[in-house]
Every structure is written in C-alpha cells, then in structure tokens.
Design a protein around this nucleic acid. Structure first.
Lengths: 169, 169
DNA sequence: CGGGCCCGTTCCGTTTACGGAACGATGGTC
DNA sequence: GACCATCGTTCCGTAAACGGAACGGGCCCG
C-alpha cells in the first residue's frame, strides 16, 4: 500500500532502488523491504525517503478514507475542511453536480444553512418549493431544515464549493 | 515535535495516557516514549494512536507548509484548491484575520471578484470606500479591481473561507 | 566467452521499538 | 492514618527494523 506508492514515486523519477537508498542514507535492504511491504518502517526511515523524493510524508500515507466523499445520484462532494467553532461547525466541500435529473436531499437539523458558490455550469438548488439559480461566480444560500434539491441546468456539469453550517445545538 | 502534538490532542480530549494506550492496543511504555520523543515510532504504532484520536496521520506529522500560504499584517490565508474553468480561474482559501488594525490590499485585475463566508468572529471587508460587515455564517462579495480592506471587528480572530474568481482575460 | 558494473533481493549480526510488569507519586474514601 | 485505584515513567526480555555484505540476474564491452 504505502510501499507501492513509494515505488511508484521512485520509478516516476527513474532512479534505482540502490540509488535512492544511498541518497536517503538508509540500507538497500530497508528500502527493499519498505517497498515490498515486508517491513513496518519507522517515521524516521519513511521521512528520509520521502524527503529525497521531494514529496511531503502525507503523499505516501494513503489515508484510508481520510477525505470522506459523499456520493449521490447526481451530486459528488469531497470534504475539504472542517471548522469547529464555539457557535457552529462548518464543513467545506468541493461539489460536482452531474447533468440530468438532479438530486433530492432530505431536511437537516433545524438551523443548518448551506452556502454554495458556483465555479462553472449553471446550478438550480435550494428548498424544493423555492429553488434558486446561479451561474458561474454566483452564490446561493438557504436554510436546509427542509427537503432541498440540486440540479445542473443544461448539459454541463456543475462545479461549486459547498459550505454547510451546523449551529451548536 | 510529533510527540508534543500527540500529547496535545490527547489532553484536549481529556483522556489519560494509560487509557489511550489501552484503546489503541499498544503498551503504555510505547505511548510514553512516543510523547516524550525518546522513541522513533513505526507507522503502525503512530496510526493506532491517531486512529483512536480520530485524526488523520497527517495531523501529527508537522509538515513544513506543503500548501502555499499568504501572510500579511493581519490576514493569513492557506490555498485549499484551484479550479481552472473555461471562463475563469477560482482559488479557494482558508483565511484568518487577526484582531487589530486590519489590512489593505491593492486592486486586482479588472473583473476579479472575492467571495467570503465567515466561520467565526465578525469581519468588515470590501472596497475601501464601501466595506460591508458579516458575522459567523455571513457572506460578503465584491469586485476587487479597486483597493480593498479586511478588518476583524472586536477582539476575536476571524475565520472564513475566501474564494477568488479571476475571469479569463 | 570472461569481466565488470549495477540492479533488486536475501542473509545476518546489531540496534532498537515493542508490550508487560514493576515502580513511585497522586488523589479519593473510609 | 491505612487502603485502593489510577496516573505516567522506568526496567527488561522479546520481536523486529536497521545497515552491511553476500547473492543471483541482466546488461554492456572487449
């Protein structure tokens, strides 16, 4: 898993296992075992390798579901950041809405608001009884304690940022 | 360094070293040595701990600023994502504004717009001749082809997301 | 073909990270 | 006071990660 990523990065750069081990100041046996997954490396060892590869440690630490994604019929969102404040918790998503029939989302807790800034395409979203439309650069905002919908207008996929605000109960 | 972060996260949660070691399925000696920096833990060990703390591994691996950050007198922004569309390029930032005198920013190219959603604190920002104010959950938007300013109102630091839209020339 | 070179893996002795147990310190209860 | 539970550190034998050396394989060159 992590070994495969290291090996991939090394081969991308076209350098040999022996050479990388020498550059990183570790034994060839260590690097071989790391790449093949037969060793459980220390942070220090892994850092020596990633530093030589010029990538941050996080690159090879394939977090299993580190960035949770939400899939739906038309909507696909990736969590970029969570911010927990005294008054509310914010979740910032990168959202894509595929063209077609759109997607319905059930009501959230009372007081939850959604904030969308459209990057590209045309989005029609909001409470099912009063959706609004925004094109690239536009902004939408509604209180999502009622069922709401997301629909891409036209044939183009919509890209946008979605901010969910959950007030402290 | 990394030990201090683990200790900080553990104490934030108010659980003892013994309890965390038991939950993570590792020895108390191991966790003690890890927190005090007298051991060089394996990935496996560190993962067991961070998983129990509910944070990704990257949280405790003090990466030297992998993502570019913009520092100013009062504003500190971290680039989260860049989105290049046919019509415009978007840059999404995580922004903090320190309390105090605020910060002035010169005019951008014509047509550039800024979009801010405030997470916490109260922010006063916009064109210098017509700034607007937003509290937690609020949204600001202006065309930034004129000089503009950012100021935290009150003593609390402002946290927000900043979206910059650069129309294609 | 033989020799030299570098490749990646395997072997092996040393170092060290590991978990369990023992330790002294602290706080609460009777 | 004695007692007990839990805290975080230290001690210690074991398991394993470490680097160096040896190994087999592939390639090039004379």
């Amino acid at each position: 898993m992590i070994g495969a990523r290291v090996r991939g990065l090394r081969e991308e750069r076209g350098i040999s296992l022996s050479a990388l081990a020498r550059l990183a100041g570790i034994g060839k046996a260590t690097l071989s075992g790391l790449e093949n997954g037969t060793r459980n490396p220390t942070i220090e060892t892994l850092y020596a390798v990633t530093a030589q590869l010029g990538v941050p440690l996080a690159t090879v630490l394939a977090e299993p579901a580190a960035t949770p994604t939400v899939h739906g019929a038309a909507v696909h969102a990736t969590l970029l950041e969570v911010f927990a404040d005294a008054d509310a918790t914010y979740e910032l998503y990168r959202m894509r809405v595929a063209p077609g029939p759109g997607q319905l989302s059930p009501a959230h807790q009372p007081g939850v608001t959604e904030h969308i800034t459209v990057f590209s395409g045309v989005l029609r979203a909001g409470p099912v009884d009063a959706p609004a439309t925004a094109a690239a650069g536009g902004y939408l905002r509604w209180t999502s304690d009622v069922p709401h919908s997301y629909t891409a207008v036209g044939d183009e996929e919509v890209a946008a940022s979605l901010l969910l605000r959950y007030p402290r109960a």
